[in-house]
Design a protein around this nucleic acid. Structure first.
Length: 1039
RNA sequence: GGGUGAUUAGCUCAGUUGGUAGAGCGCUUCCUUUACACGGAAGAUGUCGGGAGUUCGAGCCUCUCAUCACCCACCA
């Protein structure tokens, strides 16, 4: 049955994939013939995810490696799975609820909502796993893992798994070792998702902002001499001020100011350090007074040199506040609106001022009042945090709206710093038109000092809203304690990051690592395995919450793998039996239990869940059954991690830290980092730009193999990845070329698979191609081992197309059509063998078309996916004589073709060929291969002559000069021009070679083989030159 | 502000211890020759971003300048 004209990818790929999958071809250990394992962990895509070009690239690399190792007989595992992706998934389900008119998340409650998420996951999640099959990914799907498997909320219909166990066990272990702690700290808060996020999830983007300058009046109307000096100490400004000037980009935070800080060496403010100033906003009668303190943080050269300190809403201020014990007032709710809870402003402000006054007195900012004075003591930080210092008129406003109102109100009150307004749009001015006209200044055109300014603003990487620093209780991994081994693993070379530049980036981040905030105020995720209970004092008396529901003493935490265990711990702590420990749904119901005081001890679970990356960090062993005893743990540590550079910190560094901390081993020996996949112009793909390339469209149009080959080909280490449809198309054509090579064999009715063994070739032609195959196998393996996939792809392309198809198949025609049965048989066998090698070597890159061609054979012992990868070397297979001879033949054909084309000999016309001075080697090369040469160069006959006749095209070759007599057909001038052009090129080369060899220093200092090579080269070129010169001289005679 | 990478043919990019530049696409000309027009044959195209240095020799090493990209960073 004749072959189809081309490979029908659309029809064949699903069929072939199904065959592989049904045969269990990708299962862990399939085709293993040795004990060594090879394991790659797929970076788990979001359960909500769809396949994009980045995945397609990534997967191609991993699949190439896995298929390659599997064919080599390794015990391979490519471990697939999905990430539960806390924020993204929760968001998607919430959207879905809204679209389908279902109750909101908060309305249905936690348990029911989680049920919805699981339902959603079962119905719509994991699309990407189906899409990945279209790429040909050879993952062991039966092992597909999920980072939320085994969670309490998981329905029975879910595939079983124990990833949740791993997460809890790790948390508990790290908690017990003191590597995880809880604390009230300033964290990045996402007002859209209403959760804390980690530093890494924040993108700092430069936006157009403003800096406002306001006056903070000194308490009691005090004044001071404000003096500015230039560098030389000359006074440039001297005035009496009753205020201190403050610059801010975030006026709404003024409400939470706890102090104003200046540098201790800033002479301008020396007179007022230690004095109090007034917050310039809010009801006049309740303006809080805050101290002017010194701190190293303010830069005297920036702004006014004085900084307002809002400890609860700015990371710098937070540090200053911590240093100075300055109260931090929380101003916003979880949505980023000004708080509307608590008591009326008057009461709150009064209370804050009372605490503040005591603090001021304690610190010596204020005189102790006469008479009896009782210090009520430091308020608990929770009490401070609970106070709402937002004046009533701003309560409930969005932070940006509040900003506008505050600016307007402060300005209206005359507390904005004023500057002369710039000139109105220049009407015609006499003289200088850049100067602000005096009459404008004099007329009192002043305006508030607001600088338009580029500011770096933090945005949530998913929500795209402005991140608010917020003072909240969160869980942290004490990364400083576990970072050491992860650093050492790379420094000591146990894990290698490729490209190497990644290592520097890795060091820099890890060496400056911040605590990792791992709690998220979400529902979809691993709920933190910590239960709280009221703390007891020395007498075992339980503490009651205060009127605001705050506990003055830290809560008692019980960290355990199960609620039972937690209850057990609690019982031991309170000195009661576990029956007395009563789990309650939340803290609020806990209070009521407390209030009853009936001998029960309530404990309630932390409602927060863990950062998704906390669980992803356990991926290298959580997928292998850990913490259960599982045979699959033999695949740990894995081998290579292939992932995008962008998640080096998010994921790679965390896996390194967690694997080292929990198992004491690095999770892989190599990290292959790649860049973002961009469009052909190098731009990021985005829906708004409309330049998104969907890999599935590419597969539909050109087949998965073409896309994969394109991916492999652009995988230069560290390179920019630009995907281009033209390229993919080109590799589809390459597939067709390969297809047609088999069609060729089919055409000549060569038995398939025939004798698959490599023949012991006698024909030069066959020896040569066998040697070339040996070379390419070595090149491909070396490239693969070095992760230079582009080199592997290029080598195979050049071999298959440039050597096998362009030359070998052409050369084989005369033999295949000839009468020499022995030569024919040998050539048939060689051809089959070589084509088989092409399939084997190309399989990791182009699995579908190669498997299809492989199985066109009548019978195969194994599928190609399990065929044995060859180990022959160039040294084994290259026959130097055959190599030289065939290259000479190719050279001659090339030269004749070139000469013919240039003097316009019709392509179809056969010409006779002359030769002079042919040496023995040349003669035997001709004798052995004249049939091929005559056929491919369209030559009628060869005649030996002493001298070329007039009008002859000259072809200089090693070992003889060939010529094509064209008598009158030849345009002498044109031929001279052609030869001279060749001479010119040759002249350049000769110049270089002679220059080097004539330089005694070169001969003295260059390595011997380089010198030898240059000499040999020179001799060859000189010979060629002589031939050309003679030819030109001959032509000149007739010309 | 710190860091990393890039700059090579019209385009997109390779170029692994320094030995005198390559691929694909595109372009030009010819060819419907019995595997293949998703093809064959031939061809054109580069002072390797600028400058300096080291070296017998530099696309590659050093310095410097320029442009671009990305990452990190708290300047109110």
């Amino acid at each position: 049955m004749p072959m189809e004209k081309t490979f029908n990818a659309a029809e064949a790929e699903p069929r072939i994939y199904k065959m592989w999958e049904e045969a269990g071809a990708f299962k862990a250990g399939a085709n293993a013939s040795r004990d060594e394992t090879f394991c790659i962990m797929l970076p788990p895509p979001n359960v909500t995810g769809h396949l994009h070009v980045g995945h397609a690239f990534n997967h191609t690399i991993m699949d190439m490696l896995t298929r390659w190792k599997r064919m080599q007989g390794y015990d391979t595992l490519w471990q697939p799975g999905l990430d539960h992706a806390g924020i993204a998934t929760q968001l998607m389900v919430e959207k879905d609820l809204a679209e389908t008119q279902q109750p909101k998340r908060t309305e249905m409650g936690r348990e029911k909502f989680l049920g919805k998420v699981w339902e959603w996951k079962a119905a719509k999640g994991g699309t990407i796993e189906q899409q990945a099959r279209r790429l040909g990914d050879s993952m062991d799907w039966s092992r597909s893992a999920f980072t939320m498997s085994g969670a309490e909320s998981a329905p029975a219909t879910e595939k079983p798994g124990n990833f949740h166990d791993a997460v809890l066990k790790v948390f508990v272990e790290m908690y017990n070792k003191g590597l995880i702690y809880r604390g009230k700290r300033l964290v990045n808060w996402d007002p859209h998702f209403e959760t804390a996020i980690s530093d890494l999830e924040v993108e700092n983007i430069e936006v157009d902002g403003h800096m406002w300058h306001f006056k903070y009046p000194l308490a009691g109307g005090e004044t001071y001499e404000y003096v500015e000096k230039d560098e030389d100490g000359n006074v440039t400004l001297r005035e009496t001020r009753d205020y201190i000037s403050i610059a801010t980009t975030r006026p709404e935070t003024i409400l939470g100011d706890g102090a104003v800080a200046v540098h201790k060496d800033d002479e301008r403010y020396a007179p007022i350090v230690g004095k109090l100033c007034e917050i310039p906003v809010g009801p006049k009668e309740h303006r809080r007074l805050i101290p002017i303190i010194t701190d190293p943080y303010p830069d005297p050269d920036f702004g006014s040199g004085a900084v307002k300190i809002t400890g609860a809403h700015d990371f710098n201020d937070y540090e200053v506040a911590k240093r100075g014990g300055i109260p931090m007032y929380n101003l916003m709710d979880t949505k980023g609106a000004m708080r509307a809870d608590g008591k009326p402003y008057a009461e709150e402000a009064a209370m804050a001022q009372r605490y503040a006054d005591e603090w001021l007195i304690r610190k010596g900012f204020k005189e102790k009042p006469d008479g009896l004075y009782i210090d009520t003591g430091e308020p608990h930080e929770a009490t401070v945090a609970a106070m709402n210092l937002v004046p009533d008129e701003y309560r409930g406003l969005d932070r940006f709206e509040a900003r506008k109102r505050l600016v307007a109100d402060i300005t209206a009150e005359g507390l904005a710093v004023m500057i002369p307004a710039p000139a109105p749009e220049p009407g015609p001015q006499p003289g200088d038109d850049t100067e602000v006209p005096d009459q404008v200044r004099d007329a009192g055109h002043w305006e508030p000092f607001v600088e338009a300014k580029k500011i770096m603003q933090p945005f949530g990487d998913r929500s795209k809203v402005v991140i608010e620093p917020m003072l909240t209780d969160q869980w942290f991994v004490d990364t400083a304690k576990i970072v050491g081994p992860a650093l050492d693993a790379v420094k000591e070379g146990r894990t290698k990051i490729m490209p190497e530049s990644g290592e520097k980036v890795y060091y820099h981040w890890l060496e400056n690592i911040e605590p990792w905030c791992i709690s998220r105020q979400l529902w979809w995720g691993h709920q933190i395995p910590v239960w709280y209970g009221p703390n007891a004092d020395e007498n075992g008396e339980l503490e009651f919450p205060d009127e605001r529901g705050q506990f003055q003493r830290p809560l008692q935490a019980f960290c355990a793998n199960t609620p039972e265990e937690a209850a057990h711990q609690a019982a031991a702590f309170y000195g009661v039996t576990t029956e007395d420990i009563v789990p309650v749904a939340d803290q609020n119901t806990g209070w009521s239990w407390l209030a009853k005081d009936d001998g029960d001890y309530p404990i309630w679970r932390d409602p927060d869940v863990l950062d998704t990356w906390f669980s992803s960090g356990l991926w290298p062993f959580g997928t292998l059954g850990w913490p259960a005893e599982d045979e699959a743990m033999k695949y740990f540590p894995g081998d290579v991690l292939v992932t995008g550079q962008d998640i080096l910190f998010f994921w790679v560094a965390r896996m390194m830290m967690m694997s080292e901390a929990i198992l004491g081993q690095e999770p892989f020996h190599t990290v292959y980092l790649h860049q973002l996949v961009r469009d052909a112009k190098g731009e990021k793909m985005s829906k708004t730009k409309g330049n998104v390339i969907d890999p599935l469209d590419m597969i539909d149009a050109y087949g998965a193999d073409a896309l994969r080959f394109s991916n492999a080909q652009m995988a230069a280490l560290g390179g920019v990845l630009k995907i281009s449809e033209d390229r993919i198309k080109g590799y589809r054509n390459f597939g067709t070329k390969l297809w047609n090579a088999f069609s060729f064999a089919d055409h000549y009715q060569i038995p398939y698979p025939g004798d698959a063994a490599r023949p012991d070739a006698t024909q030069t032609l066959n020896k040569w191609i066998i040697g070339e195959t040996g070379k390419v196998r070595e090149t491909v393996d070396a490239a693969m081992e070095a992760y230079r996939f582009n080199d592997a792809a290029d080598a195979l392309y050049a071999f298959t197309w440039g050597k096998v198809c362009d030359w070998y198949l052409e050369f084989s025609k005369p033999i295949l059509q000839g009468d020499d049965a022995a030569a024919k048989a040998e050539t048939e066998q060689t051809l089959r063998w070589v084509l088989d090698q092409c399939l084997i070597l190309l399989h990791p890159i182009m699995p579908f078309i190669t498997e299809e061609l492989w199985q066109l054979a009548d019978s195969r012992a194994k599928m190609l996916v399990h065929a044995a990868w060859p180990t022959y070397t160039a040294a084994d297979l290259v026959d130097a004589d055959a190599d030289r001879e065939m290259n000479w033949v190719i050279d001659l054909i090339d030269n004749v073709r070139s000469a013919r084309a240039q003097v316009h000999v019709p392509a179809g016309a056969k010409v006779s060929l002359l030769v002079t001075g042919l040496d023995d080697k040349g003669q035997s090369a001709w004798d052995n291969n004249h049939v091929l040469i005559q056929r491919l160069a369209r030559i009628e006959s060869l005649s030996h002559v002493d001298a070329f006749p007039k009008g002859c095209v000259t072809i200089p070759m090693a070992g003889g000069t060939f010529g094509i007599p064209l008598a009158d057909l030849i345009d002498v001038k044109e031929e001279i021009a052609r030869l001279e052009k060749t001479m010119q090129k040759l002249g350049k080369e000769l110049g270089g070679l002679r220059g080097r060899l004539n330089n005694p220093k070169f001969v003295a200092s260059a390595p011997e083989d380089v010198v030898e090579e240059a000499k040999a080269n020179l001799a060859l070129r000189e010979n060629e030159e002589a031939q050309l010169k003679a030819a030109i001289a001959r032509l000149a005679e007739i010309g």
